[in-house]
């Protein structure tokens, strides 16, 4: 037996140790990859501010339904209510004859000012700022709704 060769069991345990070290480093590398993975997938670019111009004046009914909001302009004032239901995000509709807003998915109801009246939704509908642009005669020419 030459002095340079290692005993069999010692070589075996060294191999086992190396194998284990390799296994741990692979797991470590995978775990380390989770960080850039989460950071990348969770990144949200800031949405551009959106301004939607609705030409005025509104019809006599005093409201107009757009894709993302319902604009009300009457004697009480001008405001825009989000059309995204606070229950599960479906697009709500204004029911003119009943004078309330209703969700087609689970029939949550809201008042014209977005207050929750009934149904599974728990929060009020968000309200958006509206800038009224008047013409020289003081009549509304356009409504600019700021969506945030």
């Amino acid at each position: 037996m030459s002095g340079k060769t290692l005993p069999h069991s010692s070589a075996k345990s060294r191999r086992a140790l190396l194998k284990r070290l390799f296994g741990w480093s692979v797991s470590g590398a995978l775990l380390a990859l989770l960080y850039p993975f989460f950071r990348f997938t969770r990144y949200q670019p800031k949405p551009k501010p959106r301004y939607v111009t609705v030409p005025g004046p509104l019809p006599l009914s005093g409201y107009r339904q757009e894709k993302d909001f319902i604009l009300f302009a009457n004697q009480k004032g001008t405001h825009a209510v989000s059309r995204t239901c606070t229950h599960l995000g479906c697009r709500v509709n204004y029911l003119e004859d009943k004078e309330y807003i209703e969700c087609p998915c689970h029939q949550s109801r809201f008042s014209q000012s977005g207050e929750r009246l009934a149904g599974p939704a728990e929060r009020n509908l968000p309200i958006y700022k509206v800038e009224v642009q008047n013409n020289d005669n003081g009549k509304a020419q356009a409504y600019v709704v700021e969506l945030v």
Partner: peptide, 20 residues
């Protein structure tokens, strides 16, 4: 559209990992 939005909100309702 409604189905997609409902799925999104269901996902968001999951604690801790919902947003991700």
């Amino acid at each position: 559209e409604a189905a997609g939005l409902i799925a999104e909100n269901i996902c968001l309702s999951i604690p801790v990992v919902g947003t991700w």
